[in-house]
Design a protein around this nucleic acid. Sequence first.
DNA 1: GCGTGATCATAA
DNA 2: TTATGATCACGC
Length: 220
Amino acid sequence: MKYQAPANKQELMQRANTLTGTTVQQLANKMEVDVPESLVHAKGWFGNLLEQYLGAEAASAPEPDFINLGIELKTIPIAENGKPKESTYICVAQLEPAALSSWEDSLVKHKLTEVLWIPFEASKTIPVALRRIGSPILWKPDFEQERQLKNDWQELCDLIALGDVDKISSSMGTYLQMRPKAANASSLTIDKNQPGSNALTLPRGFYLRPSFTHSIISSN
DNA sequence: GCGTGATCATAA
DNA sequence: TTATGATCACGC
């Protein structure tokens, strides 16, 4: 089962609000799918289920999930202490020289134009099916948040442009970090910023640190 | 392999 | 306990 795309923001929020306080099992029942015992082999399962229920359309394209609304959908796993349990994946880190200079034209900026966060319980002690879904949070980065993200993005992209992508560590970046994003550590992609031109490197992606997403969900 | 959806697992 | 580095699944 898959629902139609919402016509506007209000429709999207109404639909998201129907999930508040319900369990993963209840959503799975609506969608007529089984809940996996563990997420070890189903890491993106909940995110995909939510996309189906809310009518997201972008699928695997590098665009916001609700293209017509310019809104990205993100699930946010919450630990017992009320804080995000994981960092949030945003998008692939492009290595093409042309993608390294303009924050305004970047994938990160486009993905984070407006985000619908769906918090849910992610404690290992709670069976997946019984985890509860929280209130949706519609968020846009404010001036200060965007400034911080842009700073981190620019710093990381400058290193890539200099051919130093392999010197980038996950510990860099205050709110935005760059980490491996691949099938495994043997994956390779072309890095045209190297003098040799045909250099290969591990594919990476941009992620939001939990401290950043925590500030988002706690202020709403 | 690329880009999406993410969480896992272990070193620190 | 936490964050880094690695990994799982899927469509194309």
